[in-house]
Design a protein around this nucleic acid. Sequence first.
DNA 1: GACCAGGGTAACT
DNA 2: AGTTACCATGGT
Length: 295
Amino acid sequence: MKIYEQSGNLILEGIENFDIEDILECGQCFHFVKKADHEYIICAKGRLLHVSQSNKPDVKQVIFYNTCLDEYYRVWSDYFDMDTDYAAVKRSILDIDQRLSTAVEKKSGIRILRQDFFETLISFIISQNKQIPHIKQLVAALSRRYGTGCDAGDGDTMYLFPTVEQLNAVTVEELRACRVGFRAPYIRDAVSRVYNGEINEEELRSMQAGEARAKLMTIYGVGEKVANCVLLFGLGRMDVFPVDVWMKRIMEYMYFDGEMKKNYIESFACKKFGQYAGYAQQYLFYYGRENGIGK
DNA sequence: GACCAGGGTAACT
DNA sequence: AGTTACCATGGT
């Protein structure tokens, strides 16, 4: 891959294992807008990123608009997990189980984003018992109401996800008015405990996965599934395997004859895929969900 | 109108 | 320790 600046934009040429649609639409991230096919604006890292991708065989390139090499190495390289060799990840997954080959091939452009911890925590608390479009809608609503505005071009404004300080100034009643429903007190507790330092990102990062999960689950409204999503998407723990209703169906279809407990599925998958569990989960989730596997 | 959604909690056996 | 009703809200 070649990376260079060109008239204020950054070009990633000959890029492999990177498809912006797979990355954003696979369900790990809720804070972006689609401008056109293969063109998005992402809210992340306290700023906006306008991205487009051309997948023609002769010009295989990604454009990050209005940015530079310096910002790429400081910010986006980490966000897009560019230090991970996804070709090697896929080989390892397929060595473990050839039956994931279809999912991995069809969704071969997925990368696990290294997202902001606090935004991931609140977003996945919101996600419970909701469909992805609703989650995106609520994340956008909270951001518009309490977050900082950024110029998104064409006279549009997009709003960053509120900081801990910004959300800490919001009452449960105000949260309810944002239509988050029974999640309002959950969000309020999570915000308070991050704000007062009881829940600390660096501390969580230094813990073992099981210990960090237990700590996250002390937040009112955070159970096993949400904690695992925060570990995977917000704390870079690629060895966890969140099991939601979809993963339950997909795994039952692929590995079990009929119903199986979520807890059993999770430990089964973690044992099977080890350090690649999170990647395997995301290939399976996106492919399985799009194809209605097990429904 | 019933049923379900990237679940979790409290109140039951 | 393992089940079950209920929780707001929006979509089919």
